[in-house]
Design a protein around this nucleic acid. Structure first.
Lengths: 152, 152
DNA sequence: GGCATATCAAGAATAATTCTAAATAAAGCA
DNA sequence: TGCTTTATTTAGAATTATTCTTGATATGCC
């Protein structure tokens, strides 16, 4: 298949790690970058089918794993729901809305370190952390407030 | 079966919610409280079998759900691993050790509020949050440090 | 004790993800 | 360019944790 030149950044990142930048991997990566939301593997699969009709769900899982392994994408877990994937590499938490089911990125306030917030023993080494909130996103919270006001 | 008097606190909590405090539920609750660690449902099942040999895994799941519904136990999730259950009701995070596989409770430093740490939009309502760290617990971190020192 | 309801046990069913094996595609080299 | 080696993809089977279903038990209340 034909190849357009890619912005070096991520194509190179993949190559540096010893992986090939295939059409499938690009399509999966683009599916995330174009929307910058938090789709599940199945949702990515549906988006990608348009571009690479022959792609299989297993390949989507493979690609997502490769991309996370390269540090280009993050996995987002919440309770026992399907894993979601996030292209935002900045430090942030996630808010899972109980109203609309959406996921919102919540940035960390500047200069907060885990040790300032949590009583982490000195010795521990943190390789990864994940913070998730469940509640109502701004939109749903406002809608709920309106409803309550009216009914009273 | 025979019943010893229970400390009112949790037996009552269960009754208040309209549930019966059965032998199975007590055994599951005790399995958590006696060790105060973070077992999976299967681990709870194994512990409980000694006390209630006829118990089934499905019942352990049911009991754990009832107990969490009553606010006596918390569910702890990490990546896509099996859910774990935690009897510590204080505000805390969890450290999942990549060395020994153990889970450590990490208390919140006094008086930190989520809004101080995260750029949460004013309107949002948080009903629940979960913080998990992955890394090396103090014991494993020390062991790793020793090893590195020796080999150099 | 007898009735209504809650709970339990066993195994089937489900859902997300991973694994397997064969087919395809790409990269490296003659 | 053609050949070889290796990586990747595909489709479907397998796995794993959890939930659901159904009939059997146990409990609380009159």
């Amino acid at each position: 298949m034909s190849r357009k030149p890619e912005p070096k950044s991520y194509a190179e990142t993949i190559h540096e790690k010893g992986f090939r930048f295939t059409d499938q991997r690009r399509a999966v990566y683009d599916a995330l970058m174009n929307r910058r939301d938090h789709p599940t593997a199945v949702e990515v699969f549906m988006r990608v089918k348009g571009k690479v009709p022959s792609i299989s769900l297993a390949t989507v899982y493979n690609c997502l794993e490769t991309l996370t392994g390269c540090g280009l994408v993050k996995t987002v877990n919440h309770d026992r729901e399907s894993a979601r994937y996030c292209p935002n590499l900045d430090e942030h938490a996630h808010l899972f809305c109980e109203g609309c089911g959406g996921v919102t990125d919540i940035p960390l306030r500047a200069k907060r370190r885990a040790h300032d917030i949590w009583e982490l023993p000195e010795e521990v080494t943190i390789s990864h952390h994940e913070i998730s909130f469940r509640g109502l996103c701004p939109k749903c919270a406002k809608a709920a407030a309106r409803k309550t006001t009216k009914s009273k």
